[in-house]
Design a protein around this nucleic acid. Structure first.
Length: 348
DNA sequence: GAGCCGTGGTA
DNA sequence: TTACCAAGGCT
């Protein structure tokens, strides 16, 4: 039997008996499928489930998400990372509500025009909700195909994406494209994992190139390495009793539009930060930590400055910040290091 | 199109 | 400790 047709049948048969039970698995509601796919971009299922439940609970239908405040959406997204996903999610909800009568496009080509929906997500939604025969090419599909067929193409190359997509189009089940896409993802997440792959339990283990040659750990090939840049950030907790300054971050840096403490950045690790020359001798160093992003290593120092009411007001104007109390934080999305810092502050 | 955008799990 | 990378997309 043709190896590609064989793979299709084996993967689907395996899926029918081994698929994961997930909150978005028993619906074809494009709103719910869309939400789940955005949440799961570059995110593990285990981490995404709680966020999915929370969003559905707050916004059962698209209209409610569309009418929400962006800061509320960001707050619900807090801790999940890649916050542009939340901003695009909200923008797309508003667009569909205001201009498309809350109706999603029913094909991948038009879905791709929406903010936050790229090739993968468009195919996932279209195949699951509308039975469009289009492969959802994600990290799992790259890995399963590369290993099963013995493809050594560098998956960070755009040309490889075209090749794998074309291959996926040949293999995908014509009758059950959505199930096929999800089957490959389950296989990649449960069996054909990057490490500790469980080939003995794999439905493809009688004809897998990587298993036969014992090169599972060589595939897929990914050559590009990301470079990590060091940054030295100083955050200052400027407060009068339990009132303190908080400010929204701009959209040209990490954690865009999230809320944070007044910040100064320095060139080197041991540079003394200059927050405000009238107050710098009163700033007290609290602690430091290293926070890792996908592409930056942030060396963060936290400082404290206790001031009177008038100074707090002056410094609020200086930083263009807001004066808030701890209870107000339920309305503001915070980056993880700031969230941790505020959790420590409450025990003052 | 290469670089950027988070957090957490794992080895 | 470091590196990889997870249901990618945007600029």
């Amino acid at each position: 039997m043709d190896k590609k047709l064989n793979a299709n049948l084996l993967i689907l048969a395996w899926f029918d008996h081994n698929k994961r039970i997930l909150p978005w698995r028993n619906t074809k509601d494009p709103y719910k499928i869309w939400l789940s796919e955005i949440i799961l971009q570059q995110t593990r299922v285990q981490q995404g489930i709680a966020y999915y439940e929370r969003f559905i609970s707050h916004f059962p239908i698209l209209e409610m998400l569309a009418r929400a405040d962006e800061n509320q959406v960001l707050k619900l997204w807090q801790g999940l990372g890649y916050y542009s996903r939340a901003r695009n999610l909200h923008a797309t909800a508003k667009y569909l509500y205001l201009h498309e009568d809350s109706i999603f496009p029913d094909n991948s080509q038009d879905l791709k025009k929406l903010k936050g929906i790229g090739d993968y997500t468009a195919s996932a939604i279209a195949s699951i909700c509308y039975n469009e025969v289009t492969p959802a090419l994600d990290g799992n599909m790259y890995r399963v195909f590369a290993r099963y067929f013995g493809l050594y193409d560098d998956i960070s190359e755009p040309a490889t994406k075209k090749k794998f997509f074309a291959l996926g189009k040949e293999i995908i089940d014509r009758e059950r494209p959505g199930d096929f896409n999800q089957a490959v993802m389950d296989l990649g997440a449960m069996i054909c994992t990057p490490q500790n792959y469980k080939c003995e339990a794999c439905p493809l283990n009688e004809s897998c190139f990587a298993l036969q040659k014992n090169v599972q750990n060589k595939l897929p090939v990914k050559l590009k390495k990301i470079t990590i840049k060091n940054r030295y950030l100083h955050f200052i907790y400027i407060h009068h009793q339990h009132l303190f300054l908080l400010m929204q971050r701009d959209d040209k840096d990490v954690w865009a539009k999230l809320f944070s403490l007044p910040k100064v950045e320095s060139r080197k690790a041991d540079d003394v930060p200059i927050f405000h020359r009238d107050y710098d001798d009163k700033c007290r160093f609290l602690y430091e930590e290293t926070h890792l992003l996908s592409h930056q290593r942030l060396h963060i120092k936290f400082w404290e400055l206790e001031v009177n009411e008038q100074s707090l007001s002056d410094l609020k104007a200086f930083w263009k910040a807001e004066i808030v109390s701890y209870q107000d934080l339920e309305r503001y999305a915070l980056p993880k290091p700031i969230e941790k810092f505020m959790d420590l502050r409450i025990f003052d």
